[in-house]
Nucleic acid binder design. Sequence first.
DNA 1: TTTGGTTTACGAAAGTTGTCGTATATTTGT
DNA 2: ACAAATATACGACAACTTTCGTAAACCAAA
Lengths: 125, 125
Amino acid sequence: MKQPIKPTESELEILNILWTEGAATVRTVHEKLALTKDAGYTTTLKLMQIMLEKKLLSRDASNKTHVYTAIVNREQTQGQMVQRMIETMFNGSAMQLVMQTLGNHKASKAELNKIRAYLDGKVKK
Amino acid sequence: MKQPIKPTESELEILNILWTEGAATVRTVHEKLALTKDAGYTTTLKLMQIMLEKKLLSRDASNKTHVYTAIVNREQTQGQMVQRMIETMFNGSAMQLVMQTLGNHKASKAELNKIRAYLDGKVKK
DNA sequence: TTTGGTTTACGAAAGTTGTCGTATATTTGT
DNA sequence: ACAAATATACGACAACTTTCGTAAACCAAA
């Protein structure tokens, strides 16, 4: 396991877009970002350049318009962030986090069944 | 709903201690903190003073040794932090967060049953 | 080919965080 | 009563984050 990844809020937003898009230019990322946020193009560019330095992203600079890709794994990063939250706010209890989340969010019957199926699988093992 | 609360990592650690302790002096908080962290006493003091300014904490200064209390609600703060994480990393899907968490953590049979009971309750309604 | 749009690079500024040193006040034990 | 321990206040600092202006390179279309 490598040293822990600790992206900022803004960086996570960008990572999330790249995790979904796969690979994208600054412009693409910026436009997705602009849907929920309000910052200039050069701001997004700068953030992604910094993320490149931090090795959160890689880029293909063979063309003039560079194409960026996330090089940190989605599940692993999510796992680390969730873990951190569990430790600092939920006294280390993952189940407390789960209960908190279930308590605050409506879920479709299908989703609940999915969780139930998952729990069943866990017990059988 | 008030303006969103956005404590830093260090602030959350302190909040968590105060949520558990109820009310405490800087020294008490610092000693709990020192179990997992490594910073000087004045650092903890300063952080708590800043949190006082931000109105995350209140204090009783009637005695020379001040006594601090968290004035942000535990469940509400947890909820907001979880919500932020869901939005920035899980594309707004709380269930994805739940699945991620269940996938990465072992749970006792008792805990699993507790969750299952909770899910049953949700469906009945 | 000139003009205008797009892109990258760079640097600077403002705000925040976490760290601690030092000064000063207060309490306590001998 | 005096020295040692303990507490608060304050300011400074480096690191980091987010923001953007500006310049330079490049491309494309008229």
